[in-house]
Amino acid sequence: MGEFCRIAWLVMRKDLRVEVRSRELVYTTVFFATSCVLVFSFAFVREGRPLAGVEAGIVWVALAYAGQLALGRAFERELGQDALRALLLAPVERSAIFVGKLLGIVLLMAIVEVVVVFLVTLFFSSALIEQAFWLAALLAAATVGFAAVGTLFAAMLARSQSRAVLLPVLLYPVTIPVLVAGVSGTIALLAAEPNLDQARFWLALIAFFDVVFLTLTLWTFEPLMAE
């Protein structure tokens, strides 16, 4: 297990180092998510008052699309110099490489989530931050599931010329239960009387999907990476 974690850590650290140097993904995703929230704020805020209950949808739509952007680019980088093959040629468990890539995506999405939640709170006078703990739990759990499936599909499609089209076509149908549970859990938190029982139910559902998705993606990554 120590060796597995060491390799995952190495891959994640490398990805973060590359991102710190290029800032390509963080700029693209944060800019996209910010634009998304701004556009929705013009559409859904009337005379200084936001329409009731729209914040949950805005948060999750912004995150899903920003996440998709990050997933696509994360593996295009490996293709630039065919570095993905160098990773696959290393004498390590390929699932550890997968976990390293996944952790890098999760961290990047976490940055976007902080920005989106802050902006939604600001523009929609939302009570999101009042339930910070449960919101963070919902976001963290959903991000893991979404990123696990997305990382697998992005890796699978890395060598496909139609990857930009195929990634969302594959990603959203599979991750829709996680996104729907995320939206429902957030709506429960934003009710006039926050319904924590319902939020916990949706959180448990997301956790269930996380277990299923992580198991399947760890199991299938190695065979799917074989040419």
């Binding site: 180092r17 590359v18 110099q81 065919d82 570095a83």
Partner: peptide, 9 residues
Amino acid sequence: HELRLYPEL
């Protein structure tokens, strides 16, 4: 042919 290096590193 492809050198498999990370240009940013």
